[in-house]
Amino acid sequence: MSEQRNDTKFINRQSFIELNARERAEILFDTGTSRELAGPFDRMESPWLAMQGVTPQADDGCVVMKGKISGQSTVVIALEGAFQGGSLGEVSGEKLTAALDLACADNEKGIRTNAVMLLETGGVRLQEANLGLASIAEIMASILVLRRHVPVICIIAGTVGCFGGMSLAAGLASYVVMTREARLGMNGPEVIEQTSGVEEFDSSDRALIWAIHGGEQRFAMGLADALVEDDAQQMVEAVQSFIAKGVPAVHRSSEIALYRSHIAALDASRQWDPKELRAIWKADVATEDTQ
């Protein structure tokens, strides 16, 4: 008995997760319109890593590209998860902030410039602790200003995920796009286990991790706006659709009363099943599935 197969398209897709930060950024643009700013040949590397015996990288793990998406001027900032876990240091933080601020200045001059952040990051770079922390504050301030003009789109594709301070940046974004292999959370699994014990959170239990932090759960709870397959084409289309949508009427991070009431309504004395949370949280959130 021969079988009809329907997975050939998936097998032959171009994986987005497989791409490095530079390739991820580039593929989002209309063909041939992108150029890199403050690239590796400008040698903006961290002055702090070598002192601590860590080899720095010529782009400090942050790629900034400008070009057109759907014909509109857009800046894409991508953190490289393979370099120091995508962590944010002084230089990479400054590159990210400057890119957002320049886009903001353009918009204020009447030149519409969208912003996309590709976040694969564990948050602040421990070797540059305070400088990294300061960056997070600056990035958040910059997003808040920029998102009044244009949508700030955040992509978390995996496999590092988006944790720590940068999860706040994701929280402020106009739209969050995830794959089911991506994770989003304030404290990563290992951090929760270290601080609260293995009974609280077993960081080796992958099923648990993805049930809490995984893209499918985040989307189902209304904390992400699109869940796409690990497919470059789907990622491009998701970004284009959110650029077309423009600035949302209300940003998720402005829904303070709604999320306060959500949290207040949770009975913390019992263990909640992640699936139950989906039902309760998603019901009130007006997001659309782009799939």
Partner: peptide, 29 residues
Amino acid sequence: RSLLAARSMEDLVAWSGGLYNPPAKFRGW
């Protein structure tokens, strides 16, 4: 890596037509 017929556990599941069911410790979703 682009030369690999499958680059993730998800790819292996797809190749198997959904018949392969990876144990939790190998799931990244």
